[in-house]
Structures are given as C-alpha cells and as structure tokens.
Design a binder for these strands. Structure first.
Lengths: 200, 200
DNA sequence: TACGATACGGACCCAGGGTCCGCTTTGCAA
DNA sequence: TTGCAAAGCGGACCCTGGGTCCGTATCGTA
C-alpha cells in the first residue's frame, strides 16, 4: 500500500478547511470572491497547510465537491430505484438527470466554482466522465436512440451549473418548475422517434 | 448623437489590436495563456492603448467575438433560407444550431476564452440573449413543443464551447460527424411527441 | 503654425494563487 | 519518560497578470 496514514493533526486540519470552505462558498455571493487566504483564515490555519492538503485551488474545490457528491454517488451505484442499478433504463435516465439537477440546485456556488475555476475544462474530471459513461450506457439500452455518446453529453449540458444559476438564481425559476422543465425535456429526447422518421 | 468619431490613429490601433488578438488566440493552445501584455506587444502598442479601447479583457474578447459573428448574424437576420427569416421554424431551428456549432468549430479558442473568462456568466451577454430569444420564438411555433424557453437554453447548451472543444479537439471527432450528431439530437427534441404521451 | 484635445505607452500598482523554510507537533522506540 | 526524526505548520514572500496613471507625442483644426 503506497498510502501512509496521515498524522492526526493533519486530518483534523483537512476537515477544518473543508468545513470552512463549504461555509464560505455557501455564504458569499460569487465563488470567485472566496479567496484561498479567506478559507485558510476561516479555518484558523495557514495558507501552507491548505495547499499541502489539496495541492491547489482546483484540488480543494474537487475534494469538497466529491465529499458532497458521495451520498448521491452511493445512491446511484448501490441504492434502491429509481436511482439505483435495479431500475429500467428509461426511468433511470430521468432519475439520474433529476438528481444531477437537484444536486446543483443544492450546491449552486460550489458547482459554479468548480465548473468555472476548475483546472481547465469541467469535462476532464473523474466524476463527469463516470457520470457521462453511466448515462451513455443507459441511453444505449433504450431502443431507437442512435447516438448515446453525444446525447449523454448534451443532456448533461442542460444541467450545467451556470445555466442552473441563471434560471434558478437570476430569473428566480422555482425549484419544482425547473425540475419539471428538465423532466419534460429529457422525455422529449428519450421518447422521440428515431431521427430520419419525423413524427409528422 | 452622443458618439464622436475617434481619431484615426486610435481607429488604426484598434484594428491592429483586434487582428493581433485574433492571431494569438488562433495560434496558442489555451486562451488563458494569451495575456493582455502579449496582445499589446503583438499589436505593437502599449497596454494603456489596449485598455482604453476595450475597457477590459472581457470587452476585448467580446469585440472580437462580435466582429467574427457579424456575418453569421447578418445571415440569420436578413439572409436567404435555411438561416434567414423566410424559413419555416422546424428547418430554421436545425439550421441555426448547426450554424452555431460551425461557428464554434471555426472559432474554438475564442469562444472558449469568452465562455470561461468573460465577466461572469456567458449567459448574461447580449448575443446569447438574442440567440436564445430567437430560438425560443421559433420553437414556440412548432406544434407540440411545450416549453420553448427551457428547450432553447438546453439546445444551446449542447453547443457550449468547452463541450465542442472536448469532442472536436481532445477526442478528435471530425467536423461532419459532430454536425450529424447534433442534427440528430436536435431532431429528437424537435420532432418528439408531446411529453406525457410516450411513443411506446 | 499654434494650441487644445485626444491618444500613446510603459512604469507602476495590487490582488490573489502558490512556494519556502525555520519552528512546532507527533508518535515511535529506547 | 524522554529523545529524536519525520511530518506538519504558518505566514512572510514571490510572481504573474489584469488594470491604472501621467508625462509625452500626435492629431486636426483655426
């Protein structure tokens, strides 16, 4: 095992930083005015500590995101229907996208911070790739859907953090309405006839 | 008229900056390593000049983008079918999204720079709002499509610059294939039956 | 040609991410 | 218990890059 267990003060500080960052992102308007120094100060820790634990800003954001995501991920990988693996593809696609949307609604600032500030593209990240692959494999089990690869990307794009922020935040669309809109949209994509044979 | 005509050296410099920036964004791998100082140097101009002409980085990016967009915009607002206003809604939706995709393919780095680095959300920009409104109004003329507002956002999200960059750039999907994928996807959304009445 | 208005340019400023290194804490072992 | 590496700490420090300032040069009009 190449991993050695960290010293307990290190572990405690790591948690403190995570908690402080979480609180700050929830409190402040825009993620970009939460500075690394702020987080360090709020956690009662030096900047060095913070960078040693998470490498860089993107690393911290990612760690926070993954921590928040853990329960959802578990529900998807091993939970009961409609999110869990025992669900038929059609319903699971809807449930999955709804879960993603809800997650972003519940973690707006954080998701925003990660998708803008994260090192380069939000697409080159472990959890996006996993999610996209899962969605893709489910789409490909639905008869009549030709290109699961692209469709998975496109559907996920409809839940991008900044779009959610625009609709839920700036335009004040209520949560349930947004969920209904996404559900309708997903239904259109998933239940559509094969392209090349328009309904008309 | 509140606008006074600029001095001719100012106009010349403005063009030089635009050209230099354009070249730099096309040449360099990532937009974030094109610095303002680089642009100024490449244009043979001082930094002050550059900021006087465009206010800030976002302003320069926006000016460049709009300049590139001008012909497309014209084709949409006053050109012949299938992009122009005389086109029936169903075809025009496809044509519009294809045009957006092609534009982003032809201006990858620039679009990327604008969508990431632009002042805050890429959604709070004049041209996005115009585009989204137009798409929305066309979608609402298509029978059976309930929520044009959300669908317009969601469809445009499928052409986000970083997604295009991932697929066309990093994964090497050829241009025509990507266009076909998007066309299929759009067809699914637009030609789908009303939600609540699945095709099965 | 003279002179006000406009523009130039690069030295300068500053915030914020990331590093460094002398000091402290931890925890194993004698 | 105490000794002593190794691991961790923290905040002064560095550097990049966006944005500003102001003395100087240019424009264009009378």
């Amino acid at each position: 095992m190449p991993e050695r267990k960290p010293r307990k003060d290190a572990a405690r500080n790591r948690e403190a930083v995570l908690a402080a960052a979480d609180a700050l992102f929830a409190r402040r308007e825009s993620p970009e005015d939460v500075t690394m120094a702020d987080i360090a100060a709020a956690a009662g820790v030096g900047k060095g500590t913070l960078f040693r634990a998470f490498d860089d800003r993107a690393g911290l954001l990612l760690a926070l995101y993954q921590k928040r995501l853990e329960p959802v991920r578990y529900a998807v990988e091993a939970g009961p229907p409609p999110l869990g693996p025992a669900t038929p593809p059609r319903e699971r696609v809807s449930a999955l996208l709804d879960a993603v949307l809800c997650f972003k609604l519940d973690n707006r600032r954080l998701a925003l911070a990660l998708e803008e500030g994260g090192s380069g593209s939000p697409y080159r990240t472990e959890h996006y790739e996993r999610l996209q692959r899962l969605l893709r494999s489910m789409l490909e089990q639905i008869p009549g859907l030709t290109d699961g690869e692209f469709a998975a990307h496109a559907l996920l794009a409809a839940t991008r953090a900044d779009l959610v922020e625009l609709l839920a935040g700036h335009e004040g669309v209520p949560r349930e309405r947004l969920r209904a809109q996404l559900a309708d949209y997903v239904a259109r994509v998933v239940d559509a006839p094969a392209p090349g044979e328009p309904a008309a």
